[in-house]
Design a protein around this nucleic acid. Sequence first.
DNA 1: ACCTGAACACCGTTCAAGT
DNA 2: ACCTGAACACCGTTCAAGT
Lengths: 230, 230
Amino acid sequence: MARVRIRLQAKLDVKLTAKAALDPGQIVQAALNLLDEVGLDGLTMRRLAEKLDIKAASLYWHVRDKDELIVLLADEICAAMQAPDPAMPWREQLQQFAEEYRRVLLSHRDAARVLAQSGPPSGESRLNLVEILLDVVLKAGFSPKDAAYAGFLMNDYVTTFVIEETRYVAPPKRQQPPDEATESWMDALPADKYPNIVALAPHWLNVNLDEQFHFGCEVIADGLERRLNR
Amino acid sequence: MARVRIRLQAKLDVKLTAKAALDPGQIVQAALNLLDEVGLDGLTMRRLAEKLDIKAASLYWHVRDKDELIVLLADEICAAMQAPDPAMPWREQLQQFAEEYRRVLLSHRDAARVLAQSGPPSGESRLNLVEILLDVVLKAGFSPKDAAYAGFLMNDYVTTFVIEETRYVAPPKRQQPPDEATESWMDALPADKYPNIVALAPHWLNVNLDEQFHFGCEVIADGLERRLNR
DNA sequence: ACCTGAACACCGTTCAAGT
DNA sequence: ACCTGAACACCGTTCAAGT
């Protein structure tokens, strides 16, 4: 009798208080939240487990590696990507793609670094993103090989740009005014040894990121167009 | 008497067997060797110390951080950089710069990643590298702002390209033939969902890296030239 | 001036064991 | 099927102490 009661009690415990088994979606969602809170360098298996009310070791039942987690994360980030209007001319589609891609990468902390770290595209959303990009360049009329090269070029341009532009947001320590620090560092440069750097320092500091991003897009699009007209 | 003898003995020990105090050059040189042996992920303060016959804690007398070490390393890598022939037309100088830069980055394991990780240029050699690049674009006739943007673009293109092209050399585990693995992975892709990726898969796999690198250089140079002629 | 011992506060990952 | 305890083999960094 006592035995039966104990068994029942255990079952009730399971139904009432035990957390339902995690599905993969919850894990990547928690990882994404954690990423936004602490950044890629703070994203830790142990911290993620804590966030899921679980022990770190348990994560390894759901996920092979931290690497695999990063891949999942990268895919989740890319899910927000929207295709450009296929009715537009290819140059504008490419431009639109680049802007949308940048927007997506800026929408989560360190997203661009996550993509860069997670190897070649493999998840559904990331493959879809690449598919969209290739669609634009193929329909523009590039040969398969040139389309592949152009796709790489454009993909790398956007991710690298965003990595650079977000590198110094939320510097880990000593929140000293960044432009002042950079300025004094620039002033210390010997102008006779690095005349060009010193001359261009103003553009180094007070950058208009949107403008700079657009510059690169335009240069690449112009270069691609030239190649097409041959 | 006994006391004097002991003192003398100690002095002899110092002269004969004690290692001379390290200079910074030895440290970065050892770090560079270690980098070539084990790659950036294996480059550890503890391992570096071991290589210098020292305890890890001692490194912090010579160097503030691991970050500072990485910066030193990046500068040492860039020391090999040679300027392009200033008599040539700017497009060829730019091309030459890019090829030389790539060569430098390929000459040490994970060199491109070291540069990417070590923040904005600060060391002498790295500043010199940037100075050379800016010289090319400024003399080509770009406005200061465009020259700054063009310099960023070119610098990021080369480093990112080399990071990508070296990402899968010396994969850490399971030395399974890479192209075979990639192929089977590609075959598993649903061709109706990702028709472009599947169609371009051959160019994804059997890449001619030199050709691909040249493609990007040409596209960027063409785009820059177009901007110049306005 | 330069180096060490010993510790601190972490990591990713494995694996036998629990339920 | 899913989770935990406990450990393993590491990290970067600090700091009092040695010489």
